[in-house]
Write a protein that binds this DNA or RNA. Sequence first.
DNA 1: AGATCATCTTGACGTCGTTCAGATCGGTGT
DNA 2: ACACCGATCTGAACGACGTCAAGATGATCT
Lengths: 209, 209
Amino acid sequence: MREAATAEIRPYHHGDLRRALVDAARRILENEGPSALSLRAVAREAGVSPAAPYHHFKDKGELLDAVAHVGWDMLGESMTGAKARAASLGALMTEIGVSYVQFSQQHPALYRVMYDCSRDKDMLPEGMQDNEDSAYCLVRETFRKVAGPDVQEVDIELATVAAWCAAHGLAEMGGFKQFDPLKEGLGGEEAFLRAVLGHLGMFQPSRPA
Amino acid sequence: MREAATAEIRPYHHGDLRRALVDAARRILENEGPSALSLRAVAREAGVSPAAPYHHFKDKGELLDAVAHVGWDMLGESMTGAKARAASLGALMTEIGVSYVQFSQQHPALYRVMYDCSRDKDMLPEGMQDNEDSAYCLVRETFRKVAGPDVQEVDIELATVAAWCAAHGLAEMGGFKQFDPLKEGLGGEEAFLRAVLGHLGMFQPSRPA
DNA sequence: AGATCATCTTGACGTCGTTCAGATCGGTGT
DNA sequence: ACACCGATCTGAACGACGTCAAGATGATCT
């Protein structure tokens, strides 16, 4: 009764604390934002002492890494779903891009943690690297399919990077209040997203002159 | 002799502490990175007590705002210089974009503070809004010039937002280690930047089909 | 010179991340 | 059944942080 959590099974000692901590962290992120996400607050939310997390994570950064990992998994599922929903081959990249930005808008605090973890290490997170079914590979393989066989490998890679940068930039800046009048002029949030992504050349995987 | 700073004139009491604090903060950012930027460290670096900054800034956030403001001024100058250096009308936007991303690479800690301040308020910082000679206006007016008279206002605005998102995304992600092989394949850092920005449609201010 | 007021210092409070010695408990071997 | 062991958790502590209230300091004005 002490913990408010989702902890169900407790295979050893007091419970599956590792998962409970990650869940508690996500709950705090959703409810109170990134600035409230202290290790002590997470322990408090999970109903354990401030020192307990150190038996499951080296430090706060490792806990955040675990939270970010969950986030990347969620984002990957979201993008995979968008890919499946795409009406046409040409719409594939746009649908994926829109789902990416929408995810960042639906989980802004989580998205921020995800990218802060990456930036601290100057690299995309583990779950996104070149292993299969990573989000990065999803985008690249989609580009490969859309581009056809006569596009060079380097251009596919380039298009993937460019699309990722564009989506990330829009994810971080799309909420800025300065853009509100423009959004209204275009007919709402999603129309705005599609317009910006359209501008950003998500369609042309081959390098322009 | 106590302060290591750039403080020259000291118009009242003990010195131009406001400027000295901003300078101290920038020095810490350059030398030790954003994680070392505590209010107490800034006061230490400026040679004053931990409470002294509160006579010039409401809280830590306001000090960071002041630091960010300096950063936006520097970035604006950098972009204006790049615009002046552009060889042709068509190269204008690319040069500005490259200078934007290069600034973020030369001052990564400062750039991070600049954007963290913006994100906390969900808007571009004061110094960038619709007043003349803001960086935002610089980009928009450049787009207007490149686009010619027959392009609609909403498309110019859209192109500005899109370019900004692209540049910001590249600024934050361009340093990721995963992209190193791609950079080598393209012939170095700057070639990589130009290739990505080229992909992102910095040239076409009119909406694609 | 004396009063005034912005400026700066001192000292304190609560919170944070982290560590460490010890309490606790599940599982293992006998 | 029982003693043990190692994994797990607690309690207390440390230094650093942001912030605040009260007092000292010193420039400026009359």
